[in-house]
Amino acid sequence: MLARVQLPRTAKPGEVIEVRITIQHSMETGFRFELDGRPIPKNVINSLVARYNGAEIFRAEMGSGIAANPYLQFYTVARQSGAIEISWVDDAGNRGAERAPISVTG
C-alpha cells in the first residue's frame, strides 16, 4: 500500500504543524458488486495511528464512510527533531506504514 505523508521540513519548538496523509486504498464498502453479481467484500483501513518519535499524537477509527484513497489532515505541536510515523491496518489485516522527518530548531 502506497502512502504519502507531508510535514513542514522545519519548525520552531512549540509551533503547531500540519500533518497530511494520503493512502492508496479502495476503502471497499462491501456494498459493491462485480459485474457477474459477486459481492466485493468490505475492506477499509479501520485504524490509523500517528506517532511522533514513538509517542501517539493522533488516532483514527474509520469506516466505509471515508472516501477511497483516504486523505487525512490534522495538527500537532513541534517538540523535538525526529520523525512522525503513520501506521494503519485494514479489514483484511494488511498493514502499512510511512514516515516523514522533521527538524525542530529555534
Binding site: I57, F58, E61, M62, A67, Y71, L72, Q73, F74, T76
Partner: peptide
Amino acid sequence: LMATFHLSPASGRAQVATRVR
C-alpha cells in the same frame, strides 16, 4: 458512523480534515 478521531494536548489545534462518502 463514518469515523472517530482521537486528539490530545499534543494536537495543538482541534481541527481534522478528510474526504467522506
